[in-house]
Design a protein around this nucleic acid. Structure first.
Lengths: 143, 143
DNA sequence: ATCGGTGCAAACCTTTTGCACACTG
DNA sequence: CAGTGTGCAAAAGGTTTGCACCGAT
């Protein structure tokens, strides 16, 4: 635990330092990703961005997603079936539990699972670059 | 544990019992899935099926995949990026480690991870229907 | 003979790309 | 001002579907 709270809010500065131009669309899209607590897909991001600047296009959303992904500012998820959904990279790594009835996404983390994954990969002779753990479940009704 | 070894080889019978007609394309596709050890995508399945019956179409492959998936005979994987890849449901559940450099898929299983997943879901108030665990890694070079 | 299954082509959905213009640094 | 970024429209995957014919039961 004890991961010190990263002041991860300065993506703009990070990008600028990397030689990336901060344009109006990028600022808007980045702002949306940073503020939201959910996992919107490209169309949803476009919808929200359009409210702030009607001229933003879907291509720009996708291009910005790719850019931000490459710079580690966001992560791309491909939950079963649908389109990619994006999430801004926060302080701490987590995995997802998807409610198959509502589509809700619940975040959780387990240091023990992470550790087990590392052990397994090591036994197989690999170094893990990243992983994906998704639980698909249904809300338990108390009985 | 002690799941008794299912003689899971009689998918045809299972399907027939479920009122599904066993046609030539279905038998061929099912055969391919049962024999292969890898995780082919729809085009690859079509390619192999075509060798046995040149008239089989991609639509039939997809339709059969959906059918088999619904009957639990196969699983559909959506590894990062590419198209869906299919795998015939074998005796024992397993997860995947994807070699990011070669695309190779290595299967592994860990009862401890499965157990942890159940615990986590229970704590969150959910019952797990299924899950997806993929490790993306690079072969470790001895140094 | 019936009704489900198939091939074909067209449609769909998500994502990428070519091009000419616009804007950031 | 140079060169990157953008919008638009078209293209590129991957997957699904409407339709008329075909074949399993």
């Amino acid at each position: 635990m004890t991961t010190e709270a990263k002041q991860s809010l300065d993506f703009e500065g990070d990008l600028r330092r990397a030689g990336i131009r901060i344009t109006r669309p990028r600022r808007i899209i980045l702002g949306i990703l940073q503020e939201t607590g959910d996992h919107p897909d490209a169309y949803e991001i476009l919808r929200r961005a359009s409210a702030l600047d009607a001229s933003i296009s879907l291509s720009t959303v996708y291009r910005t997603m790719k850019l931000l992904e490459e710079h580690g500012a966001i992560q791309r998820h491909a939950f079963a079936g649908g389109p990619s959904r994006f999430e801004h990279t926060g302080e701490e790594h987590h995995d997802h539990l998807i409610d198959v009835e509502t589509g809700d996404v619940i975040e959780f983390r387990s240091a023990r699972i992470e550790k087990l994954q590392d052990e397994i990969a090591r036994e197989l002779g690999y170094d893990i670059l990243h992983h994906r753990l998704e639980l698909y479940g249904r809300k338990r009704r108390k009985n």
